[in-house]
């Protein structure tokens, strides 16, 4: 796709758009269709949540955007990731490196293993500052301590010299956030930032992210499977299922007026505490094996509304008629 064609699809205040992203993993058993035609865009200043079950391709999507997929076995087969008018998937490594960090920063989901165990946390934050803010030495060190204070790490000056194993999981995740913010990114991707933490720490980290977002105003892509977090943090939501985006809408519509049967299914799995007789609903069946996805719509084996065409033809991902920026991948959308 040429830049002009790319431009034509972009919206006014879109800072990042992903088009038809396809990432497969080539393993002994065959080809895993981990991400199969993902489309999404992020608007300036918003928080976009990417939601889906484990293994639906959320993290692979995020890593593919910055070309951080381990290859082999993974390979980004096609697609465009447009940021500042440039396609990240088709640029030189040296150019891409300037966008990683300063343009788009990443917080990974495992704070335990995402920090280098043999470097002090201070040095790791300093590296982010030196690479992305163009300052070095003592000045960078002061900035790093400032970042530790920003993420509310007590006794930041002495913590600076700690190694990751000397910190708790929640503290490590704060360091990860500090490190990502130290890059001064335009977009911050947080990949399940609280998944491996216990519940009280999860709440603290989410609260911190919310505060920082208010203070700094970065655009955030939040990858999660926690609908509670989505309700609290997100402006818009992109729902993924089996390597594809099935629906995108504003957060209110997702919860109150979902268009895709899958979205409706996951929203209904939330407990309504006010309704004493409410039984927890589940979606029957399991997500498909991505080594061999079902023909037609990938959700059809579990869908209560599936008809003949759903088993034969994969629906297009298209704009919902008469809606304001709602997209759905379904032959028979619910709205």
């Amino acid at each position: 796709m040429s830049p002009s064609q790319v431009e034509a699809v972009q919206q006014r205040d879109t800072v990042l758009s992903v088009k038809n992203l396809v990432t497969h993993f080539f393993i002994r058993e065959g080809e895993v269709h981990a991400v199969d035609g993902v489309n999404l865009h992020v608007e300036k200043g918003e928080t976009l949540a990417i939601v889906g079950e484990s293994g639906c391709g959320k993290s692979v999507t995020a890593l593919s955007m910055l070309r951080l997929i381990a290859s082999p076995p993974g390979k980004v087969l096609s697609g465009n990731v447009i940021f500042q008018g440039q396609d990240l998937l088709h640029m030189k490594q040296s150019q891409l490196r300037k966008i990683r960090g300063k343009g788009i920063a990443l917080i990974l989901q495992e704070p335990m293993s995402s920090l280098n165990p043999s470097w002090t946390i201070g040095r790791q934050i300093m590296e982010a500052i030196e690479l992305n803010q163009g300052i070095k030495g003592k000045e960078a060190k002061e900035k790093a301590i400032e970042m530790l204070k920003l993420v509310r790490i007590p006794a930041a000056e002495s913590r600076f010299n700690n190694y990751p194993h000397e910190l708790s999981g929640g503290m490590k995740q704060r360091v990860m956030i500090a490190m990502a913010l130290a890059c001064r990114p335009q977009i911050l991707i947080a990949d399940e930032p609280t998944a491996s933490l216990d519940v009280t720490i999860q709440a603290q980290i989410m609260e911190l992210m919310k505060q920082l977002k208010r203070e700094i105003g970065t655009t955030v892509i939040l990858i999660t499977h926690d609908l509670g977090v989505v309700a609290e943090m997100a402006d818009r939501v992109t729902i993924m299922y089996a390597g594809q985006v099935v629906e995108t809408a504003d957060v209110f519509s997702i919860f109150h007026n979902p268009a895709h049967p899958y979205t409706r299914g996951i929203v209904r799995t939330i407990m309504d505490l006010k309704d004493k007789n409410h039984r927890l609903e589940v979606i029957p069946g399991d997500p498909p094996n991505l080594l061999n996805p079902p023909p037609g719509c990938r959700f059809n084996p579990r869908c209560a509304f599936a008809k003949e065409i759903c088993r034969e033809k994969d629906p297009d991902y298209k704009r919902v008629k008469g809606s304001d920026g709602r997209w759905v991948r379904c032959h028979f959308p619910l709205i």
Binding site: L63, L66, L68, R97, K98, R100, G101, K102, A105, L106, L108, S114, L115, N116, E127, A128, L131, N132, M176, M179, A180, C183
Partner: peptide, 8 residues
Amino acid sequence: ITARAKGA
């Protein structure tokens, strides 16, 4: 991956 993601 973290290191590469920050631009190293």
